[in-house]
Design a protein around this nucleic acid. Structure first.
Lengths: 189, 189
DNA sequence: ATAGAATCGGAGTTGTGACTCCGATTGAAC
DNA sequence: GTTCAATCGGAGTCACAACTCCGATTCTAT
């Protein structure tokens, strides 16, 4: 389908630099940030941005795709390396922490939901699997209530990210997060 | 400060109609919806929109202000009419329900946080008081964990709205909401 | 070192949306 | 019914952001 001749060295550099800068800028200024701003910060011309990403939407999709991929990796790592309970809650905290710096996961997942050009669906699926494993292991271990699925977990991650972002100071955040964590535990009754 | 001569009948009508339509349109299309669209749907010229609300931001502020006011009223009503526990959880569910139709509260509170021109601060304070009463009564009644304040409650309302909005189908929503409700209850330990 | 294909830069185009201005209209006071 | 100030409508202005185009530049294969 795609002959995909390897990119010239400078092109490859620019592409990577653009992705990195775009991620920062979108995180800092929101997805409304202008492509020109990104080009300037990356030290390239606007033309270069649009050659690599034919559309602003495509650039956004690429950035979110990267986020989802990294998130999936992290979930798999934790799944393999830690006890089910800590792995699960560690991942939850990690996502929420990122979000408190900048609402990464919510945007990313949302974008995946909208699914720009269908690009993200594959990765989104992978992430879903990783989340599923994390969740099910924690449930079998009795660390997390049994009546939740991956869909609920995603919603909760989005909600927690948002809540924690909204809560300004660290103490409010901690107390807010505690509600989520306690709510996730098996019901005592 | 403001002589505030009463508006002419047609002006008053237009102003109200604009607010109503703007609320609908912003809810449906997001806050990025154009003023022209709102004018068209309200059946007035663009000039009329800008005479009543000198800025799109001012229009947004007015809409959000209305939402916050109604929310505060509702909280006070419940506070007066129902048992502490049901009053609290009823309000929580109510906010979340609205949000699932369209993310009303999150946007409204967020806007209040940004506080366009300081207009919302008064009402936001009132809402805060109403929430405080709802919360404290429920806590004294033992229906809600004691380690939460109004700040945490607001964050949780925002987060829950978002989470439930993200969760597509009603069943996922219910299970997601259950995590919040259980997390809000006093910790058994 | 050289050719020439790939890539770059950024001025220019296009579209959109907030906001202004003023002649036309309409409500209210008499 | 007349008057006139308040209000209206919407064409026009202005700013900004996405996207295009092409001459200038740079990489790479020989």
């Amino acid at each position: 389908m795609t002959p995909d001749r390897p990119l010239r060295a400078d092109a490859r550099r620019n592409r990577e630099r653009l992705l990195a800068v775009a991620e920062e800028v979108f995180a800092a200024r929101g997805t409304g940030a202008s492509t020109e701003e990104i080009a300037r910060q990356a030290g390239v011309g606007i033309g270069t941005v649009f050659r690599h990403f034919p559309t602003k939407e495509a650039l956004l999709a690429a950035v979110f795709l990267g986020r989802l991929e990294r998130l999936g990796e992290r979930a798999r790592e934790l799944s393999a390396a830690a006890e089910p309970g800590p792995a699960f809650f560690g991942f939850f905290a990690l996502v929420v922490d990122q979000a408190s710096a900048k609402n990464a996961f919510a945007d990313a997942l949302e974008q995946a939901g909208v699914d720009v050009e269908g690009v993200t669906s594959g990765v989104s699926g992978q992430l879903g699997e990783a989340l599923g494993e994390l969740l099910h292991r924690a449930q079998e271990d009795g660390a997390v209530r049994a009546d939740l699925g991956v869909a609920e977990l995603k919603a909760l991650l989005v909600g927690a990210s948002r809540a924690v972002e909204f809560a300004g100071d660290p103490e409010t955040r901690a107390r807010t997060l505690a509600v989520f964590l306690d709510g996730l535990r098996p019901t005592s009754g």
